[in-house]
């Protein structure tokens, strides 16, 4: 029968020391929306829970449109959705957090938890990738800042990378001028936790051209990622139908859907391309460039 200890550190170093001491069977407890379920199912060996919700630094948020922002990983989805600074400068993130249907979940689930779970269907992670988020990690090797996209990819191929590691903050770059980000998702029903397939497109717009384009498709490939070749095509010149078509073809080649019970591979692909176009269209409208 499982039996584990519980600690509630007030400072980051205390938390890190506890994690290090305990080794592989220590788990970080934030909102618990995933971990508590795993504890009940007794699927993971656990000897210690480190509750990080009472470390003030991890629950701090600084939004700065010029020098970049720093968001503690224990902020809840509800707090992010309601934060005026997030709404203003990172609206897609606020929107994605607000779109999580159950209020009870938004009140508990944290940004850090969303990242650790790393669902390929997460609209929140897609939004973070649009804003080129980086994540501050603390582990045996000390403190480290890594681009979120790399972190997601690495954890996907090796879950054990999460052991003994604590995510303290999300860093978002300075806000670009005339930058927008749009997400379009396909839901089986309005209150679904994650869309089956989604497309996020972000860019800034200068003189008829997209710059800093970011394209993310959720729910199709094994983990969330940016499609840089598609982004390149979008930025090559004026975005006409021809270019959009080339981008879509490129995207289609980069997708490797497999049948799931929710959607066949074929449907996933068709929907991803449809949503991608919709997102591009939405972005143009948002940036006031309907040409």
């Amino acid at each position: 029968m499982l039996s584990y200890h519980y600690v509630r550190p007030r400072l980051l170093p205390e938390a890190l020391a506890a994690l290090q001491r305990e080794g592989a069977e220590a788990r970080v407890l934030a909102g618990g929306t995933t971990l508590v379920r795993q504890l009940k199912q007794q699927r993971v060996p656990v000897s210690l829970l480190v509750d990080i919700k009472h470390i003030p630094d991890l629950h701090s948020i600084r939004i700065d449109s010029r020098s970049g922002s720093r968001i503690g990983t224990t902020l809840t989805l509800e707090e992010l959705a309601a934060h005026a600074g997030v709404q203003k400068y990172y609206p897609l993130l606020a929107e994605a957090c607000a779109a999580v249907p159950a209020w009870q979940v938004r009140n508990r689930a944290t940004l850090g938890g969303e990242i650790c779970v790393g669902s390929r269907r997460s609209a929140i992670l897609a939004a973070l990738l649009c804003y080129e988020a980086a994540v501050t990690l603390h582990g045996a090797a000390g403190e480290q800042v890594r681009p979120l996209s790399d972190f997601i990819r690495d954890v996907y191929s090796d879950k054990s990378l999460l052991h003994g590691v604590l995510l303290s903050h999300i860093l978002l770059g300075p806000r670009l001028r005339r930058f927008g980000a749009v997400f379009r998702g396909l839901y089986q029903y309005p209150g679904q936790r994650h869309p089956v397939v989604g497309a996020a497109v972000a860019a800034s717009y200068y003189e008829g051209n997209f710059q800093h384009a970011r394209v993310i498709i959720s729910g199709v490939n094994p983990h969330l990622q940016r499609y840089t070749d598609v982004e390149q095509i979008l930025m090559e010149g004026t975005l006409d139908e021809d270019r959009l078509q080339r981008a879509a073809v490129e995207l289609g080649q980069a997708l490797h859907p497999v049948d799931t019970t929710q959607a066949s591979a074929e449907y996933q692909r068709a929907m991803a391309l449809h949503l991608f176009r919709q997102a591009v269209q939405g972005l143009r409208t948002q940036l006031g460039n309907s040409k």
Partner: peptide, 13 residues
């Protein structure tokens, strides 16, 4: 004051 699922909150928390 915030609604939560009591089945998903540990008592120690």
């Amino acid at each position: 004051s915030a609604p939560v699922y009591a089945c998903m909150v540990l008592a120690v928390e």
